[in-house]
């Protein structure tokens, strides 16, 4: 009971600033933090804000692609790393992307891409984002991996299941909460990441993500169009969650 109340308060904490952000999407002036009056203008302007919508779309592509790749690679790494004697070198490598300062990774990657003369674009942002996302997915899945009884896996292998079957039928279902949590984490990190994306991109509109676009607006004013867009994204996602819940309940009761 007390935990349920705690959870409700936690949601209140998480959504409080989101409510403010939504209110600010109706702010008359373009000031980011000062309320000056009510307007619907920013929603109307949003329809013409091609750069912003385009950047949002790019962000979605980068986040989805880097999450997919990082989830697969990171999960495999976790399985491999946990089924062997502890190796400090491997642990260090898997910790590294989390603790290397963003700016170091950002400049290092650009120097590397320049060295190998790679064309920059959305693809290079994905390549870069996968680097840190791998580490986060791997760390979550590894904790889950430690809870699995190795005897269960050995039983599967002893019964003649191939490694792939063991992975798919035994390991993956048990790792699922970790894999899902890792994927959600890496998607969220990618959606907000700015400095590595900036340095990995050629910065043309085709390869500008939303955080890059928003930070470039800081100098001449981050206008409430951004709030309007975030509001729409929030409400849309919220509705999706509700619908999914409803459908789920129907599937069970009906």
């Amino acid at each position: 009971m007390i935990f349920r109340w705690h959870l409700r308060l936690t949601y209140l904490f998480l959504y409080g600033p989101i409510a403010v952000l939504m209110v600010l999407s109706f702010n008359r002036s373009g000031l980011p933090t000062a309320w000056t009056g009510f307007t619907f203008d920013w929603y109307a302007k949003l329809t013409e804000a091609d750069a912003l919508l385009n950047a949002a779309w790019n962000t979605l592509i980068v986040a989805a692609a880097s999450t997919l790749l990082a989830t697969i690679i990171g999960t495999m790494l976790a399985v491999g790393a946990e089924s062997r004697r502890k190796s400090s070198a491997l642990d260090a490598l898997l910790f590294a992307p989390m603790i290397i300062p963003d700016i170091v990774l950002a400049i290092g990657l650009l120097s590397f891409y320049t060295l190998v003369q790679m064309t920059l674009g959305l693809h290079s942002i994905v390549l870069s984002h996968v680097v840190f996302n791998i580490a986060f997915v791997c760390a979550v899945v590894r904790t889950r991996m430690r809870q699995i009884d190795p005897a269960m896996l050995e039983a599967s292998r002893d019964l003649g299941a191939s490694e792939f079957t063991t992975f798919r039928r035994v390991l993956l279902p048990n790792l699922a909460p970790g894999v899902i949590a890792g994927a959600l984490l890496s998607f969220t990190l990618s959606v907000d990441e700015f400095i590595i994306a900036y340095f990995s991109s050629d910065n043309t509109p085709a390869a500008t993500t939303l955080p890059m676009q928003i930070f470039s607006m800081i100098r001449f004013g981050v206008t409430p169009e951004i709030n309007a867009m975030a509001t729409i994204v929030m409400l849309f996602s919220f509705t999706l969650v509700l619908i999914a819940q409803r459908a789920d309940r129907k599937a069970i009761t009906g």
Partner: peptide
């Protein structure tokens, strides 16, 4: 629902 607020943008959440 826990993660949803974080699909908005870091900068505008901080402004909030």
């Amino acid at each position: 629902l826990v993660i949803l607020p974080f699909w908005s943008n870091y900068l505008i959440r901080t402004y909030a």
